[in-house]
């Protein structure tokens, strides 16, 4: 038998459920979507998720869902390397750990050594905790792509409800998918990560194509939603300037850019703690095998290259937006 003959079980053929998670409404809702999945009852999600010597590469062929109750910390302060979009009090929260997409360069491959996805079903606890934060900026699609999971979980809409009830909390839902339903609120930001189609094809496996992302972005704008465009991370390949230039041409030509709230721009950078694991998981990915420079604990492109890429994208965005609307990596 050759390696080509090996067939993997389909994604989500099996769902692991913490015994404590069984009675939550979200558990029932999710199981409705996976009626033929084999259920395995577990004591604690870490018994699966945190096993040693796991292989993202193998597991990515047959991912499993783990339904759990988060008994630990529910909201975290944002890391300095992340954009805070001018907000002093920046927090993030993770109702889902890991992402259904398979971006070769994703930091999650360094943070978690597994392709399996944890969904915390005690969303009510998250909402209660977030409600206590006061005026702040809260990123809710941080360790995952929340809208990409909405057909299973609908968790984005729960956060939207929180935004409705708590105008002092600005919630950001970031995605590489192409959602079709939006709620227009002044404190609910839909952040679309845009990449050239060539970058999507090569490095962002499973994500929505550029065409679909732009269509979704237009829909959000037409509904009056607060929209952020993220050209972050910019990935270096030989003809990056041409590719990102063409993408911005399309953005300007096809979208009502005056209605875009703001832009986030940044070249690829990642904690040096994660790069070893990511390179192991993606041995043939030019996006992660690039010989980065280590600056203050972060692997980045050489400074001149980072500057050239960020400056180019910023200059192109400046054609349609004031500087006050553009948030850059540096």
């Amino acid at each position: 038998m050759s390696s080509a003959d090996v067939s993997f079980l389909r994604n989500f053929d099996r769902i692991y459920i913490e015994k404590d998670a069984v009675d939550y409404p979200l558990t029932s809702k999710i199981l409705e979507h996976f009626k033929s999945a084999k259920l395995t009852y577990i004591r604690h999600y870490k018994d699966i998720f945190n096993r040693s010597r796991q292989s993202f590469e193998f597991q990515s062929h047959s991912r499993k869902i783990i339904l759990a109750v988060n008994r630990g910390k529910l909201v975290y302060e944002g890391a300095p390397v992340c954009h805070n979009y001018g907000n002093d009090r920046f927090f993030y929260t993770s109702t889902v750990l890991n992402c259904p997409y398979d971006c070769e360069y994703c930091f999650l491959k360094g943070r978690y050594s597994t392709a399996n996805i944890v969904i915390f079903v005690n969303v009510e606890d998250y909402i209660a905790k977030a409600s206590e934060l006061g005026e702040c900026y809260l990123s809710v699609s941080f360790d995952t792509d929340l809208p990409a999971m909405d057909h299973i979980t609908a968790i984005s809409s729960v956060w939207a409800e929180l935004a409705q009830e708590h105008p002092e909390i600005t919630i950001e839902i970031r995605t590489k998918s192409a959602p079709k339903s939006f709620i227009a609120l002044p404190n609910l930001v839909y952040a679309f990560t845009l990449s050239p189609q060539e970058i999507i094809d090569r490095f962002e496996h499973g994500t929505a194509g550029l065409e679909a992302r732009l269509r979704s972005l237009r829909l959000a704008l037409s509904k009056g939603c607060k929209v952020r465009v993220c050209v972050d991370p910019i990935i270096y390949i030989d003809n990056w300037k041409e590719l990102y230039g063409r993408m911005i041409d399309r953005l300007i030509a096809e979208c009502d850019v005056d209605k875009i709230n703001d832009y986030g721009i940044g070249a690829f950078r990642i904690s040096s703690e994660y790069i070893k694991a990511i390179r192991r998981a993606e041995a043939y990915s030019a996006a992660v095998q690039f010989p980065f420079e280590n600056r203050d604990g972060y692997c980045e492109y050489p400074y001149e290259l980072t500057k050239a890429m960020v400056d180019y994208v910023r200059d192109r965005i400046r054609e349609v937006a004031d500087d006050g609307k553009i948030f850059c990596q540096y």
Partner: peptide
Amino acid sequence: VDKVSDCDSGRELYPDILYD
């Protein structure tokens, strides 16, 4: 086997079930 439970220690271990 998809789940191994040790009845003495109470420990549970999970081999990956990935292949068809």
